[in-house]
Amino acid sequence: MTEYKLVVVGAGGVGKSALTIQLIQNHFVDEYDPTIEDSYRKQVVIDGETCLLDILDTAGQEEYSAMRDQYMRTGEGFLCVFAINNTKSFEDIHHYREQIKRVKDSEDVPMVLVGNKCDLPSRTVDTKQAQDLARSYGIPFIETSAKTRQGVDDAFYTLVREIRKHKEKMSKDGKKKKKKSKTKCVIM
């Protein structure tokens, strides 16, 4: 069974824990209790493949930012979460993405942009803004509501699919490099 290491990042209060708990335990946590770091595991079937999701729910508070490099190193894919009623959390996505790329030393890291709290009427981040940002990053965008469960499975499952595509691409690139290195030079 394939294991996928997913990391949920975003500013404090955007609903990272609520999304994760909704996926794992099928219930909505409405009281806000700032996370330092929590880890969850769940076995699911995605596109006919049974897999184990190892999900790291991270601290959004700035005082825990020193811990970010460590979990970013171990993560295979990242859910970059903002709240649709919090423009600052949307603007912060850029910083999370840049930090992930720096730590992973790669421009090509599996990510999904997630606009959470889409059940709320007080939207300050337009869907088109988020779609445009995701398009500019070359990553999928999904709106979710941890409260109603809308888009929750889709967000995590899409990230797994992005990781699969990335692994497939990397193995193809690896095979191309191996083929090239088999060419021999004969000096007579």
Rank of each mutant, 00 (worst) to 15 (best):
S136R: 09
E162P: 00
A130L: 15
K176P: 10
R164F: 09
F156R: 02
T183I: 01
K180V: 04
D154N: 11
I187C: 14
A134F: 07
K182V: 00
Y157V: 14
A130N: 08
A155G: 06
K165E: 12
Y157W: 14
V152A: 08
K180W: 05
D132M: 08
V160E: 04
D153G: 12
D154S: 11
E143L: 03
R161W: 02
R135Q: 11
K172D: 11
A155R: 00
A130W: 14
G151E: 09
K169A: 03
Q150V: 14
T127D: 10
D126W: 06
R164Q: 09
Q129P: 11
T127C: 12
T144N: 09
R135M: 07
G151K: 10
Y137E: 10
G151N: 08
K167Y: 04
D153R: 13
V160R: 05
R164S: 12
L159F: 03
V125M: 02
K128Q: 13
K172A: 06
S181R: 02
K180G: 08
M170S: 05
T127F: 13
D126P: 05
D126C: 08
R135E: 12
R135T: 09
E162C: 09
R164E: 12
I142Y: 04
Q131W: 03
C185G: 15
F156L: 13
D153N: 11
K177A: 07
A155K: 00
A130E: 07
G138Y: 01
K172P: 06
Q150P: 03
G138S: 02
R135V: 08
Q129M: 11
A130T: 07
A155I: 12
V160T: 06
K177S: 07
A130C: 15
Q131F: 03
D132H: 05
G174S: 13
R149V: 12
L133T: 05
G138V: 03
R135K: 05
K169C: 12
R135A: 15
V152R: 04
T183F: 00
R161L: 01
I142H: 02
M188E: 15
K167L: 04
P140I: 02
I142W: 01
V152F: 14
K167F: 04
G138A: 06
R135C: 05
C185D: 15
V186R: 04
S145A: 01
R164A: 09
V186G: 14
D154W: 05
R149Q: 01
K169L: 09
A134W: 08
Y137L: 14
F141H: 03
V160W: 07
D154T: 11
V125C: 12
L133P: 02
K169P: 01
Y137N: 08
D132L: 07
K165N: 09
K167P: 02
G151V: 05
R135G: 08
K167T: 06
T158L: 06
G151H: 03
K175L: 12
F156I: 13
I139T: 05
R161A: 06
V125E: 14
R135Y: 01
K180S: 15
K169H: 06
I142G: 02
I187L: 09
S145M: 03
M188F: 01
T127I: 11
A130S: 09
S136L: 08
A155C: 05
H166R: 11
I139Q: 08
K184R: 02
Y157G: 13
Q131N: 08
A146L: 10
E162M: 11
Y137K: 07
T127G: 11
K128T: 13
T127L: 12
T158N: 10
R164L: 12
E168M: 01
S136V: 04
F141N: 00
D153F: 12
K177G: 14
I187R: 15
M170N: 08
I187K: 15
L133Q: 05
E162H: 08
V160Q: 03
C185P: 15
Y157I: 14
V186C: 06
K167C: 04
D154F: 07
T127R: 09
R164N: 12
C185M: 02
A130R: 02
E168L: 09
A146M: 11
K175A: 13
D153A: 13
G151P: 01
M170T: 00
D173R: 03
C185A: 15
F156C: 07
F156S: 03
S145W: 10
K178V: 11
A155Q: 00
V125K: 03
K176G: 12
V125R: 08
Q131L: 11
V152D: 08
Q129Y: 05
T183S: 15
D132K: 07
T127S: 13
S145V: 07
T127A: 11
T127P: 08
Q129W: 10
S181Q: 05
K165A: 08
I139E: 01
A146G: 09
K175C: 05
K169F: 02
D153P: 09
K167Q: 11
M188C: 12
G151F: 09
Y137Q: 10
K165P: 01
H166Y: 14
L159W: 00
Q129S: 09
V186A: 14
D126I: 10
K128D: 10
T148A: 02
Y157R: 12
M188S: 15
T127H: 09
K165S: 07
I142R: 01
L159D: 04
T183H: 13
T158S: 05
I139V: 11
T158V: 04
K128E: 13
A130I: 15
L133E: 09
K176C: 12
A146Y: 12
L133S: 08
Q131P: 03
E162I: 02
T183Q: 13
K177V: 12
L159M: 03
T148C: 09
T183W: 01
R149M: 14
F156G: 04
E162F: 01
I163G: 00
D132E: 15
V152E: 04
K175G: 09
I139R: 00
K176T: 12
V160D: 02
K182L: 02
R135D: 10
A134G: 05
D126F: 10
R164C: 13
A155F: 01
C185H: 15
T144V: 03
S145L: 05
R135S: 06
V152Q: 05
Q131R: 12
K128R: 09
H166N: 14
D173G: 05
G151I: 07
V186F: 02
E162D: 04
I139D: 06
D126M: 08
V160H: 13
A146I: 12
S145F: 05
D126R: 04
L159G: 02
Q131M: 08
K184C: 01
K172S: 08
D153Q: 13
M188Q: 15
D132W: 03
M170A: 02
K165C: 06
D173T: 08
G151Q: 07
Y157D: 15
M188Y: 06
K172L: 12
I163C: 03
K175T: 07
D153C: 14
A155N: 02
T148G: 07
Y157S: 14
A134V: 03
K169I: 13
K165M: 09
H166G: 10
T183V: 04
D126Y: 08
I187Y: 14
K167S: 08
R135N: 09
K165Q: 03
S145N: 13
F156E: 01
A134I: 02
L133C: 09
K169E: 14
S181L: 03
K178D: 14
G174F: 01
C185E: 15
G138C: 00
G138W: 01
K177W: 07
T144D: 01
V152Y: 12
V160Y: 09
D126L: 06
T127M: 12
V160C: 03
I142S: 01
Q129A: 12
L133Y: 07
D132I: 05
K180L: 15
D154H: 09
D153Y: 12
K182G: 12
D153T: 13
V186L: 08
I187S: 15
K167A: 08
K178S: 14
I139Y: 03
R149C: 15
K165V: 04
S181P: 04
D153W: 11
T127E: 13
K175M: 13
H166L: 10
M170C: 13
L133G: 05
E143D: 13
K178W: 08
M188A: 15
D153I: 14
Q129T: 07
K184S: 13
I139P: 00
D132V: 05
S136W: 04
K175E: 06
D126H: 10
S181F: 02
K177P: 10
T158C: 09
D154Q: 13
T144S: 06
M170R: 01
L133R: 06
V125Y: 13
S145G: 04
A155D: 00
D153E: 14
K177F: 02
T144P: 00
Q131Y: 12
D173C: 00
K178M: 15
K169W: 14
D154C: 11
Q150Y: 13
A146F: 13
G138D: 12
K169M: 11
H166D: 12
R164D: 11
Q131G: 06
A155M: 12
T183Y: 01
F156A: 06
S136A: 06
K128A: 13
D154E: 13
I187H: 15
K167R: 11
Y137C: 12
G151L: 04
G151A: 15
V186I: 00
K169T: 06
M188G: 15
G151W: 11
T158A: 07
L133N: 03
S136F: 09
D126Q: 07
V186D: 15
H166M: 14
L159K: 02
R164P: 00
A130V: 13
K167V: 04
D154K: 11
I187D: 15
M170D: 07
Y157M: 14
A134L: 02
